[in-house]
């Protein structure tokens, strides 16, 4: 049976924890708003880019770019986009579960975010490179990742590149998803929540290219890929902050519930003590008389 002092001490420590999680919840909420706005603002551009590329690549005729060539897949790379910090609910656990499904012998991981690279190191898988990205992802950070993946692909070290990230659907719902990155064979949206997909149009509209198919596609494809990584980084950030906010809110609520339960127990114990003392006094008085 714990004494009243023990319970008081526990209440105090739970209160402190609640204060901390509450503060983290506030911080995550404000970051979440920014990250969500950034992710939403990028979507029209991404959609338009998909439409344009979808239409254009349907009418280039015989021309194929090296980034569009399909090869039999012997080795593949996965760009694993995770978070740097923990305390964001099941986000990273879900992500890592998906990441573990790839064949360990033929898969090279490209990690963005510390949690992902830790996973790769822990399970002794192949780590191709490790990138970092800031709270507000920069386009140059996305470009570095995309460039590395492109080089792996064009050098023939891997035959396919996928991206594994957490798709932001709503504040309460984020889902780990794998999307194809290279080769660029079909232009697809990233599913619900992200931009709309556009099918390759085969309606025969002939496009003119200025200055030439090679020049335009040669510039457009890398830009498309860079931007795709960038948009995915934004979505991941939005997911991370939403997930963290929800996790911290749950923690705060739990702490409050525990405080309530403990206070009840404390009061019960206190009353029991008082009753006991009263009983002792009265029984002593009765014995005296």
């Amino acid at each position: 049976m714990p004494s009243t002092r023990d319970i008081r001490r526990r209440i105090k420590s739970v209160k402190n924890t609640a204060q901390i999680t509450k503060a983290m919840q506030m911080v995550a909420a404000s970051k979440m708003r920014k990250a969500q706005q950034a992710a939403l603002a990028g979507r029209p551009y991404a959609t338009l880019m998909n439409q344009v590329l979808g239409q254009v690549s349907g009418c280039v005729g015989d021309f194929t770019h090296e980034l569009m060539t399909k090869r039999p897949v012997k080795k593949r790379a996965v760009i694993l986009i995770s978070t740097d910090k923990g305390l964001c609910g099941g986000l990273n656990a879900n992500l890592v579960r998906e990441a573990g499904k790839f064949d360990r012998a033929t898969t090279i991981y490209i990690a963005a975010g510390r949690k992902g690279s830790q996973f790769v190191a822990r399970t002794k898988r192949q780590l191709g490179a490790e990138f970092t990205y800031k709270d507000a992802p920069l386009f140059s950070e996305a470009r570095a990742i995309s460039k590395f993946a492109r080089e792996l692909f064009t050098k023939g070290e891997v035959d396919q590149v996928d991206i594994l990230f957490t798709n932001f659907i709503s504040t309460l719902n984020q889902k780990p998803e794998v999307v194809p990155f290279l080769p660029v064979t079909e232009i697809k949206g990233l599913g619900m929540g992200l931009e709309d997909g556009a099918q390759l149009s085969k309606d025969g509209t002939e496009f003119l290219f200025e200055p030439g198919v090679e020049g335009v596609l040669g510039a457009l494809l890398p830009h498309y890929l860079n931007f795709r990584v960038y948009q995915i980084l934004l979505e991941s950030k939005a997911s991370e902050h939403s997930s963290r906010m929800v996790a911290m809110k749950n923690a705060t609520d739990n702490a409050k519930q525990i405080i309530k339960d403990l206070t009840l127990e404390y009061n019960k114990l206190r009353q029991a003590n008082i009753t006991k003392e009263l009983l002792e006094i009265t029984s002593a008085a009765m014995a005296m008389s």
Partner: peptide, 13 residues
């Protein structure tokens, strides 16, 4: 480049 309606489909930088 000046573009008017009903221009030929064109992709450019």
């Amino acid at each position: 480049m000046g573009i008017y309606p009903n221009h030929v489909p064109l992709m450019t930088q």
